[in-house]
Design a protein around this nucleic acid. Structure first.
Lengths: 208, 208
DNA sequence: TTTCATCTGTGACTTTTGTCACATACTATA
DNA sequence: TATAGTATGTGACAAAAGTCACAGATGAAA
């Protein structure tokens, strides 16, 4: 784990990595696992070593709105923000690719802010970049219609997987954008006609 | 100013207030002033002593989507988040009620995190509460139709002014929700028919 | 290969939202 | 008190999104 941490979190000081190795717990999850639920108390700050996690905002009627990805080398900003007050989670986190996580107990999260400059900077930077990402999400829903939102969604998924083949059904996309499957099917068809992508069963091949 | 700070930011230690008084600058703004523009470099962290400020997200076509209020006793989370890297602002801040602000130079913002526990806690808490507020805004646009979004908008404005009389034109509301004036007029009319409010020229009287 | 569940395509329709045109109402101020 | 500028009300229509019904395609498992 030590080696992995160093590689994935290059800004961490040796002393910090030492502290993480001595105090944090390594946990594995498989695709489909929900590692954090809305309303649940947060007990750990989460660092991602491998795999892929999607963060959702849920509504009362079972809606699951996709917010952002958590990738190796990143941390869950929400779990850091809630840390100091051990509040409940405002989001839901689902594993979409088998993942190894480092769970840092909340009290340490806070303590390290004072002890390790590199931890402090990492936390602040995580806040900042997530805040900005959420603001971009706000843009996409506040200012844009569904066709552009779909393109934004596909682009983010492409960036996350680093490939051109997205394993997504129309229904999944519709759920994560909080719209209906038919709307997504029709808009995807249009994008295919424009030559932007090629549709297959359960996956979408991006051409641009 | 010392007295005001103590009253408005009761969690601040005396040493911190001392530091603020010695290093920060007091600035006054009048209604309509834009104190921060999208893309502008951030040089200060802003604390609000009096007045009222609205934070907007802007798009390329001049759209101004209302995000949240900054009130006395609060600080601009964005200016704190960008602090460490002196990045550009992702938002626009407009004074809607003559305001007195305390401008804290960025380098101090960072320095105080290590020196003053009460500053550290205030900053973290500001991050957390703003992040949560933005998540609620995401909810409202991701999951709800315009009628509910309008009610949410009115509620937040009522909370902000602490009164039942909102000085807003239909056009202003439409702009801040990124929709058209007619839509707002119609929805307001419906709310009036339901007895939730009473419409006047340039102001709305909330009844519930 | 057959069967079955799931995924995708599509037409028809409704509802919501956005646009245009214009009437009317209110208010500040000349 | 005229009048000009702004605010609001409303009908008609267009466009986007949501809903319903159902057909057909695909792939996994028996």
């Amino acid at each position: 784990m030590n080696q992995n941490l160093k590689k994935l979190f290059p800004s961490f000081s040796n002393a910090l990595i030492e502290d993480i190795n001595n105090n944090a717990i390594d946990k594995s999850f498989v695709t489909g696992d929900v590692i954090m639920r809305t309303g649940q108390y947060i007990k750990n700050t989460v660092l991602v070593l491998s795999g892929s996690i999607k963060i959702y905002r849920e509504d009362d009627d079972g809606g699951e709105f996709f917010m952002y990805y958590l990738q190796p080398g990143q941390a869950c900003a929400i779990s850091m923000i809630c840390a100091t007050k051990s509040e409940t989670s405002q989001i839901m986190a689902k594993v979409v690719e088998d993942a190894e996580l480092v769970m840092v107990p909340l009290p340490l999260m806070d303590k390290w802010m004072m002890q390790h400059r590199s931890w402090y900077e990492f936390v602040i930077d995580t806040y900042r970049s997530r805040f900005e990402e959420v603001l971009e999400v706000v843009d996409s829903i506040a200012f844009r219609a569904m066709d552009e939102r779909l393109e934004f969604y596909l682009k983010r998924h492409k960036d996350a997987c680093g490939c051109n083949d997205l394993k997504l059904s129309h229904q999944e996309i519709a759920t994560e954008l909080n719209t209906s499957r038919e709307v997504i099917s029709r808009l995807l068809k249009k994008l295919e006609q424009r030559g932007a992508l090629k549709l297959h069963r359960n996956h979408i091949e991006l051409l641009k």
